[in-house]
Design a protein around this nucleic acid. Structure first.
Length: 153
DNA sequence: GCCAACGTTGGC
DNA sequence: GCCAACGTTGGC
């Protein structure tokens, strides 16, 4: 399957992923139940992930491609009192929050901007193009994914 | 920096 | 179980 993962580049950008050890990171800190369910139940090994920069002024949009290298497992940050994602209500034997590991594949030569997504007939139905959408992890159809690859190449 | 839209919390 | 209040997200 295909997915969009959103991140504010000032918090974690595609370049941060590129510079991570082994170009891999765990996608932690998701604290929304719908996104949690995707992480726990639906996101599978080798699924492809479009990396989206939110809140990035003229650079807001899809910036690159990654793949899932480890399926859903309990997000360690929920048990870490030092973490800003710490959740004291979550129990080790019954974790509330999940994460996956993703690995960098490529950075697109240019940003596929939100404007371009909204103005494309195939892509304008994507969740990230909808007003008020706040879900940080959303599924992408094969058709949408292939359209994006066609535009970017 | 503003503010609309949304998800979550908590009083009742 | 309802819903007002609140905090957060994210485009602009």
């Amino acid at each position: 399957m295909y997915w969009v993962f959103k991140s504010e580049p000032s918090v974690f950008s595609i370049d941060d992923l590129l510079n991570s050890s082994n170009q891999t990171t765990f996608w932690d800190g998701v604290r929304n139940y719908q996104a949690r369910n995707f992480l726990r139940d639906n996101i599978k090994l080798d699924d492809l992930v479009l990396f989206y920069h939110s809140n990035a002024k003229e650079y807001t949009g899809i910036v690159g491609l990654c793949k899932v290298v480890k399926e859903g497992y309990p997000d360690p940050s929920q048990f870490n009192p030092q973490s800003k994602y710490y959740d004291p209500t979550s129990k080790i034997d019954n974790p509330t929050w999940y994460c996956v590991d993703i690995k960098f594949l490529e950075k697109f030569p240019k940003v596929l901007t939100l404007d371009e997504i909204k103005n494309n007939q195939i892509l304008s139905n994507m969740k990230i193009a909808q007003k008020g959408n706040r879900l940080s992890i959303t599924p992408v159809t094969k058709e949408e994914f292939e359209e994006i690859m066609k535009i970017i190449r």
